Simulated assay, not measured.
Amino acid sequence: MFQDLRDSNSSKFQVSEFILMGFPGIHSWQHWLSLPLGLLYLLALSANILILIIISQEATLHQPMYHFLGILAVVDMGLATTIMPKILAILLFNANTISLPECFAQMYVIHCFVGMESGIFLCMAIDRYIAICQPLRYPSIITESFVIKATVFMALRNSLSTIPVPMLAAQRNYCSQNQIEHCLCSNLGVTSLSCDDRTINSIYQRLLAWTLMGSDLGLIVLSYALILHSVLKRNSAESASKALSTCTSHLILIFFFYTVIVVISITHSRAMTVPLIAVLLNVLHNVIPPALNPVVYALKNKDQGLYKILKLDIKSN
């Protein structure tokens, strides 16, 4: 798709490739970051693969909540793998160049996976709301069919709504500069190099953020507000504590996920004089949640089967 777009607009592309410079201001020693980032990437892959293996093999974990966790693990691995191999190649081997079609393809996949992760967080929030606020109706509402339909809807929503992002970026005229002060092809980082008006790109980026991420976050906040209201009405302190404990890990990950997105948006819109912060946050946002999601869920939900199985595995080793 991007190659055809490039050919049809060849007169607009004066540069044949982009150069990803890495982390702004620390180019001389940024290769040292390859070790912690590489370890985070390996942790993300190994932890999520372990989660998938355990969920698939343990019958007690064949529940909608764990199905969503498995889907989240697949999305996390896809997001991390989209960016980390290229980042490590830049840091270790100075493989800075990336073709325009590859750059636009990476831009699309990143947006798609980030939106998908937000959507799965929403599905998990709905799952917890039904389980806590309407427990008697839970088996009839949150079924395997519900999980499949919700996942397909989120996949279609994000894959289709993010197509205009790289297409609009490919329509810009890149006539002179081709050095991107970043480790990946972010929409705003790439289009900032264009020589023509990029207002439409900024408008669609904000529209996408508000309609997709904003609506997801709003519904998640509403779900947990209703959960909190329901829990506070209970007379049993033990029952309330148990209900809230199942949501703690989810809230931790949601808080980190959306807070970093807000910070990145602010740093880009305000044109900060220290772009390193925005670039570093952007990279960490795409690798830390995949590495921490399985760990947080396993350790915080100690009463759930996943923690017990991981604990047994550790002891047996």
Rank of each mutant, 00 (worst) to 15 (best):
S10K: 09
L136P: 00
K242H: 14
R137F: 02
C123P: 06
Q14I: 02
L39G: 12
I26R: 12
L160C: 09
L168S: 07
S236A: 11
I55P: 05
I220P: 02
L188W: 00
M213R: 06
K149V: 14
V260M: 12
C133Q: 08
L72T: 02
V296E: 08
I200R: 11
H67A: 11
Q14M: 14
L5D: 01
V190N: 02
E102G: 00
Y307R: 15
I87E: 09
G115C: 09
T211L: 10
S145W: 09
Q30C: 10
Q3L: 11
L61R: 06
E102I: 00
P289G: 06
G305A: 15
G115H: 05
I254H: 00
S11P: 03
S223N: 14
T151G: 05
T273H: 05
I51W: 11
F146I: 03
F2Q: 04
S99V: 00
M167G: 04
S176V: 07
I252C: 10
N173G: 01
F13M: 15
M77R: 01
F68R: 07
R157Q: 15
M116T: 03
S241A: 14
G70W: 05
E102P: 02
P139C: 09
P275W: 04
I83M: 12
I252G: 02
S223L: 11
H67M: 14
L281G: 06
H182M: 13
D303A: 03
K12S: 08
Y307L: 15
L251P: 05
W32A: 14
L219T: 07
S28K: 09
C185H: 02
I163T: 01
F13N: 09
E144N: 10
F153P: 03
L306F: 11
V74K: 04
S28W: 04
A59F: 09
E17Q: 03
L208T: 02
L292N: 06
D7A: 06
E117I: 00
N282G: 11
L43Y: 02
L69M: 13
M124P: 01
D76P: 03
G115F: 01
Y204M: 13
V75L: 12
V296P: 01
P101D: 05
G214M: 10
M116I: 03
Y129E: 15
E144K: 03
S34D: 14
L35E: 13
E181P: 00
P139Q: 08
Q179H: 04
D197E: 14
M84C: 06
T267G: 00
L69N: 12
K149N: 11
Y224N: 14
N158L: 07
M116V: 00
L310S: 11
A125S: 14
L280M: 13
L20W: 03
I200D: 13
I227L: 12
L281H: 00
G214V: 03
G78Y: 01
F113N: 06
L43A: 13
I87D: 04
S16N: 12
I71N: 06
I254D: 04
L40I: 07
A155F: 04
W32E: 15
L306N: 09
Q106W: 01
S159R: 03
P101W: 00
S269F: 00
I203W: 07
C247E: 11
G214P: 08
K308T: 09
K308G: 09
S202E: 15
V75N: 05
T143G: 03
I148F: 06
V165M: 11
